[in-house]
Amino acid sequence: MSTPRPPAPRSPGWVIGRVAGAPVVVAPSWLVAVAVLTFLSAGTVRILTGLEGSAVYVVSLAFVVLLFVSVFLHELAHGLVAKARGQQPQEFVLTLWGGHTAFGGEAPTAATTALVAVVGPIVNLVLAGVFWAVLRSGAVDRGTVLFALMWSGAVTNGFVGVFNLIPGLPLDGGRVLAALVWGVTKDQVKGTLVAGWVGRVVAVGVFVVAVGYPMALGGRIDLVSLLWAAMIAAFLWSGAGAAVQGSRLRRALDQVTLASMGRPAVGVAHDTSVAQAGAYAASVGAQEVVLLSPDGRPAAYVDRHAAAAVPADVAGTTPLTAVSVPLPGGAVVDGSLAGAELVRAVSQATQHTPVVVAMVGGRVVGLVRAADVVAAIRG
């Protein structure tokens, strides 16, 4: 029987609604993005509309709102397709960098991963096409606010869609690449690792292009553009690095077994003497001894140092309870588990006691200490 995972904490921010059973959260950093992007859009608004004064910033704000509506639709597409494929969205979050969708669990297949990832950029590209079609139709006069909004919708959605298809994590294209490697190699961790390293290359490439392209054309890059390029590259590098580190940790977890993080143990009756327990443990190759209550449940474990300090001439008459440490209820895990499931079970059990007993079929097979879990993962 597997233990349920505790619910993940919700991102900080304001919940403005729920979609597909998940809250829509506006992070505080979103306000920073709105203010900065409104200011940066003002010049474009002046060129497109000829407006001046406060009207410029009102239209600039409309540009930004339209952008984040597009971002929300992008994330909503991720969530709805994921839910249709059996992966429940946990939250939709609008942030400084646009937004992200969190899920309660991993995608069940590589195909689901790829489909959920690619649908977001596709939505943006479709929106860009719709806005562009309206512009090309001549239905909107140039120089008007409506024309400027249509132009903004076409450009921003086109950029968001194309940029997110770049094949490197944490971008959607990176998730598609990870799914492709997963599907070919049948190794999900390898897919994430490859896409993470490609993402690091992409991060460096974005900064180099953003800085080098204007200079190659004979111009200079201004301080604001340099800072934005550095921030975007840092964001991409951080996301890619997290994917690489996460895949390494996942690999380490997958390789964890009871033998790698526990010590062989044997269960004995609570009225056994120190000498009897030592002889029995040695005969079966056990390093640890667990005292069993009359109903067969683990009640305590032997302190090896205390047991070794008992003189040999009195070890046969010294009860094992004199050198044992009581165990609280629930200090038991299923010894047949392995990998991340075993680590999760031990981690939950060691929240209440630093030592837990591993049992298989009602028989004591091992003793695990919290420190041994950390050592096994690092190893």
Rank of each mutant, 00 (worst) to 15 (best):
V290Y: 05
L227N: 06
P108T: 13
V19C: 03
G98C: 04
A299T: 12
T3F: 15
G79Q: 02
H78P: 05
G120A: 06
V373C: 02
A309Q: 08
V284L: 08
F147T: 13
A307G: 00
P214K: 04
P326T: 06
A281W: 07
V81A: 08
D222C: 08
D141S: 12
A110S: 14
A349T: 10
L171D: 07
A82Y: 03
F39D: 09
Q245T: 13
G241M: 07
V155H: 10
L177Y: 01
L253M: 14
G43A: 06
D334W: 07
V189F: 01
A233L: 06
P4D: 09
G329L: 05
G105I: 06
V126C: 06
V81F: 00
S347Q: 13
L31W: 09
L226Y: 12
E75Q: 07
G86E: 04
W14T: 12
A349S: 10
V189C: 06
M215S: 11
V160T: 12
S247I: 08
A286F: 04
R220W: 08
V118E: 09
T3Q: 14
A306L: 14
V332A: 08
N124H: 08
V290N: 06
Y280W: 15
W151R: 11
L146E: 09
E52Q: 14
A307D: 00
G98P: 00
L66P: 02
